[in-house]
């Protein structure tokens, strides 16, 4: 099991291969559907004019995400009334929904990895090669277990998206993941998709 702390260098990323188990530590940011759409439209494709605190958050994100990791997660959080936030349940959400956005977001902010579940497609895999970055697979549904690795919730942006969709700035310690897409074009998801399709075709021919 490799131990890696954010910010992560390109050398460390290039050294990772599909199948590597990693324990991640350091600061990262959660982002899922609403956040990805917002980042793309407001700052990358600029089809939407910045509103409210958008530009202020953008400046913070540029620093926070540089060399860091995006976590596809919509947590259960306590302390919403006191702002003394704590993650109670925080497993990964399905990543493939961010496929249209992910590669551009990674390149724009120099994000070194995304954590999620279920893997991503060809566009993101190419983004992993170009950035470079990797896809870290966490265990879907292991929400109480993974919440224990979140040792601090330091900030939150875009809470008006709702608790699950907000961007939470968190610090984790020994967050367990497996590399399933690397920066050399390797994807465990493509391999399993192909091998299972072969078995399916045999079963359907029966």
């Amino acid at each position: 099991m490799k131990k890696i702390t954010t910010p992560i260098s390109d050398e460390v990323i290039k050294d990772l291969k599909v199948g590597d188990g990693v324990e991640l530590s350091g600061v990262m940011v959660t982002a899922r559907d609403a956040a990805h759409k917002w980042m793309i439209e407001t700052f990358i494709k600029k089809t939407r004019a910045p509103q409210g605190d958008d530009l202020e958050v953008y400046e913070k994100l540029k620093t926070l995400l540089n060399g860091s990791v995006i976590y596809h997660c919509g947590p259960v959080v306590s302390g919403l009334d006191t702002k003394d936030y704590k993650f109670l349940a925080a497993g990964p959400t399905t990543s493939i929904r961010e496929e249209p956005y992910q590669a551009d977001v990674m390149k724009h902010f120099n994000v070194k990895g995304v954590i999620g579940k279920g893997g991503m497609g060809a566009k993101t895999l190419k983004g992993c090669e170009e950035t470079p970055a990797v896809y870290f697979h966490a265990i879907g549904g292991a929400a109480s277990f993974l919440a224990q690795t979140v040792i601090n919730v330091s900030d939150v942006f875009k809470l008006d998206f709702g608790t699950p969709e907000a961007m939470w700035v968190i610090e984790v310690k020994d967050f367990p993941v497996v590399v399933t897409m690397d920066s050399h074009g390797g994807s465990q998801h493509a391999v399993i998709d192909e091998s299972s399709k072969k078995v399916l075709d045999e079963l359907l021919a029966k």
Binding site: A89, I139, S144, F145
Partner: peptide
């Protein structure tokens, strides 16, 4: 196997702490 072992640990922890098994309730 590692995934299943983590899943079982999570089941025990959620029950003990009354926290959601999965954040997507």
């Amino acid at each position: 196997r590692g995934a299943l072992e983590t899943i079982v640990k999570n089941i025990e922890l959620s029950r003990a702490k009354s926290t959601p098994i999965c954040q997507d309730t």
